[in-house]
């Protein structure tokens, strides 16, 4: 009888032990961290204009007048680091039901510009790293939902399958784009431009096969604390002017960029496009 009891106890112990996760070494406390992407052109805020609008809000350093109808990008693989070895890695999971860790930031959709990172281990942080685009490991998961669902707003390229990482569209006074009627109600208006930066493949022995995904690391220049009652915010600025100026755009001959190779000069600017405006400890959100 006693033996049986002992056996039962042992079995129970074994069950608890054998199926349990290894959950030691997890810090006891967590908080949230908010990242706000503030889209600008130079120092100016953006008013999205209709396609073909001749209200030119901006001018490049070479005098090219333009406006924007669309600005957006995928942010993924966010990590936070602190001076004492603090480390947070946003969970990534592309599946049919969701696209965890992928954020589709769209100018004019403030919810998309405010990324809230949950379950950040309590501690001090001074650095953020993220990728602009959807890298190979995400594409190779296959069909995904959420912000990667091509039937629900995802920026997907069919023919060279993958996602557009960063896109700018608008109208430029000097754009060489002529009017095109594609039929079925689809048209491209005169003087418009579309710059779609995509391409994620690295192929050995083919230098022309371009991976345009850039990883950005930004230093806060100070530290912020995360804890159960401490939810800091990093206010980042995305300066679209740097994409155009850095690539020295001439809209008369560059107005339709829809392939990795053509997108490369613009992708090369991305590391300069993002900067930290400020960080603060306050829990209030930004718009």
């Amino acid at each position: 009888m006693k033996n049986i009891n002992l056996l039962a106890m042992l079995s129970l112990l074994a069950i608890l032990w054998s199926c349990g996760d290894d959950d030691d070494a997890k810090p006891a406390e967590f908080g949230t961290f908010q990242v706000y992407f503030d889209n600008k052109v130079g120092a100016d805020d953006i008013t999205r204009r209709d396609n073909g609008s001749t209200e030119y809000d901006f001018e490049t350093s070479t005098g090219e007048k333009f406006n924007l109808s669309l600005l957006g990008y995928y942010v993924s693989k966010i990590t936070l680091e602190g001076p004492n070895g603090e480390y947070f890695q946003d969970e990534m999971k592309a599946s049919a039901s969701e696209a965890k860790g992928y954020y589709h930031v769209l100018e004019g959709e403030s919810a998309s510009q405010n990324i809230k990172l949950e379950q950040v281990p309590a501690g001090t942080y001074n650095k953020i790293t993220f990728a602009i685009g959807v890298e190979e490991d995400g594409v190779l998961e296959g069909a995904a939902g959420g912000v990667l669902d091509p039937a629900d707003g995802a920026w997907f390229w069919n023919w060279n399958a993958g996602y557009i990482g960063f896109a700018l569209e608008g109208t430029a006074e000097n754009s060489g784009q002529e009017y095109v009627d594609w039929g079925g109600g689809r048209e491209t208006l005169e003087n418009t431009f579309a710059i779609h930066i995509g391409g994620w493949k690295d192929v050995a022995d083919n230098e022309n096969f371009i991976n345009n995904i850039k990883t950005i690391t930004l230093d806060f220049g100070t530290t912020v604390k995360v804890g159960p009652d401490l939810s800091p915010l990093a206010h980042l600025v995305t300066d679209a002017m740097k994409v155009l100026d850095g690539a020295a755009i001439d809209f008369s001959n560059t107005f339709s960029v829809h392939a990795p190779k053509a997108g490369k000069p613009f992708a090369e600017q991305l590391p300069q496009v993002f900067s930290v405006h400020h960080v603060h400890q306050s829990t209030s959100g930004h718009d």
């Binding site: 296959g142 069909a143 069919n158 399958a161 493949k201």
Partner: peptide, 9 residues
């Protein structure tokens, strides 16, 4: 196309 899922698109 690099994944079977994306072929039908």
């Amino acid at each position: 196309v690099t994944h079977l899922d994306f072929v039908p698109i």
